[in-house]
């Protein structure tokens, strides 16, 4: 199975006992980068970026809201991808990655909803509107909860992995609907803030701050998932010899 003689052996790290130390070495890097990017992004967002003309200072919550919303959707897709890999190739580590990503994704979804509510109060005058985007973000949170609930309900981890993989794949069909829902039901929510079709309407400093925080959130999610997957590996491989050597 190992592709020998082709430089890097990619299969080497698909085994939990080789991935465990690798993840341990990677975590400080990602965590450190997350801290740096977030601090720089927050500094730009709160001290450098100009005050927005219509919304005043309240708009600054966008710097946390938008990256969290991006990560919430993206994490679900990545989770479904890992789950699909686990289902297709029957690799234990892929399924572990999927279950490690789910709580982080749920957290990002929750942050996006929470900051959205706090942002909605000064700009729309209400914490919550039954707008397409808000509602579909809430649905995404429910999808994460469903994934976690199904995983918790099945005792046999191999069955849980594969059942959750099917659920994630069915749910991932919902993510595009979330993304395009803005075009389906046009209501209170403003259109996409960063659009690829037209030139960005935001000031460059605002964009820079948001990009920094988005990168920071990326790094955080990777670090958190790696940390969690290490715990999952230890838990599931507790009867393996190498785990006794680690602990």
């Amino acid at each position: 199975m190992a592709a020998e003689g082709t430089g890097i052996n990619w299969y080497k790290y698909s085994a939990p006992h080789t991935f465990y130390p690798l993840a341990g070495r990677l975590i400080p890097w990602f965590a450190g980068l997350a801290l740096v990017f977030c601090l720089v992004g927050l500094y730009i967002g709160f001290f450098v970026a100009p005050t927005e003309a219509r919304q005043g200072e309240a708009y600054r919550i966008i710097f946390i809201h938008v990256p969290a919303a991006w990560m919430s959707m993206f994490t679900y897709v990545v989770m479904a991808l890992w789950a699909a890999l686990g289902l297709a190739f029957n690799t234990r580590l892929s399924s572990m990655m999927a279950s490690a990503l789910a709580p982080t994704g749920a957290l990002m979804t929750f942050i996006a909803l929470w900051t959205g509510a706090l942002w909605g109060r000064p700009t729309w005058g209400t914490y919550w509107v039954w707008d397409a985007r808000l509602t579909s973000e809430l649905i995404l949170l429910f999808l994460y909860f469903g994934f976690l609930a199904l995983e918790a309900a099945i005792e046999d981890t191999r069955r849980a992995d594969r059942a959750c993989a099917v659920l994630a794949l069915v749910g991932v069909v919902n993510v595009p609907i979330i993304y395009f829902s803005v075009k389906w039901w046009n209501t209170l929510h403003q259109g996409a803030t960063v659009s690829l079709e037209s030139a960005p309407r935001m000031a460059t400093t605002m964009l820079a701050g948001m990009a920094m925080l988005a990168l920071g959130f990326w790094m955080y999610c990777i670090a958190a998932a790696l940390h969690r997957v290490r715990s999952i590996i230890l838990e599931r491989e507790r009867r393996a010899d190498w785990v006794r050597g680690v602990t």
Partner: peptide, 16 residues
Amino acid sequence: GAGVLISLLVLPLYIP
């Protein structure tokens, strides 16, 4: 607890 679990899994998917 399959009954409650089904609702939790399926109702969000029913929304569209």
